[in-house]
Amino acid sequence: MIEIEKLSYSYEDGRTALAALNLSVSTGEKIALVGPNGAGKTTLLLHLNGILRGEGIVRVGGEIINERNLSKIRAEVGLAFQSPDDQLFSNSVYEDVAYGLIYQGAPAGMIKDRVAAALEMVGMPGCEGRSPYHLSLGEKKRIALATVLVMQPRVLALDEPTAGLDPRGRRGIINLLAGLEQTLIIATHDLGLAKELCPRMVIMDAGRIIYDGSTMVAFQNPALLEKHGLTDYYIDS
């Protein structure tokens, strides 16, 4: 589904964000992308649908991302940002969720049905008329997810889907993600989520992939986790 070859990216001030990454994701896989702050997780996600374009090759569904197929790629790879505020900028939940479909030029009836279905999926049916501004963080995160789900992408790239949520909100998101059939790539600090949802784990640090393999095996290697800033969880559990 996704193949990344020797992907490098530097910030404008010259710092390296990604250093010659290789990663291959098959259809239907569920991958947890973990690592300390500043490891390059978000930067990597932004490459999956061509928001950032570093050096190297990113293939989605066998096609190399380029200027011309960008729009098509973005329909296949849905990206949910860490802060839902970045994604919600309309008067009503309906308008926000419908954005992608209106942009695609979908007929009005279809938009309405699919928005309703997406809201149902994230556990917030019937809230089309509410103002996104007055929602709680947990609700905003769900709506942000709905804005992506409504476009029915084949790959979902999620940045910290559970960050800042209360335990019940977190549980809700995990259950929601568990029910999805799409290919999932989740950048997260929530190792519990990784353990529960993702059989495969990719550990990043300083723009490199340090570990790529079974989540369970990674958990049996406390030294590895500790070395890359993931200890706290290890001690707690």
Binding site: F89, S90, N91
Partner: peptide, 8 residues
């Protein structure tokens, strides 16, 4: 303005 009217 219409967004601000809806939210604040």
């Amino acid at each position: 303005v219409s967004l601000l009217m809806a939210s604040k």
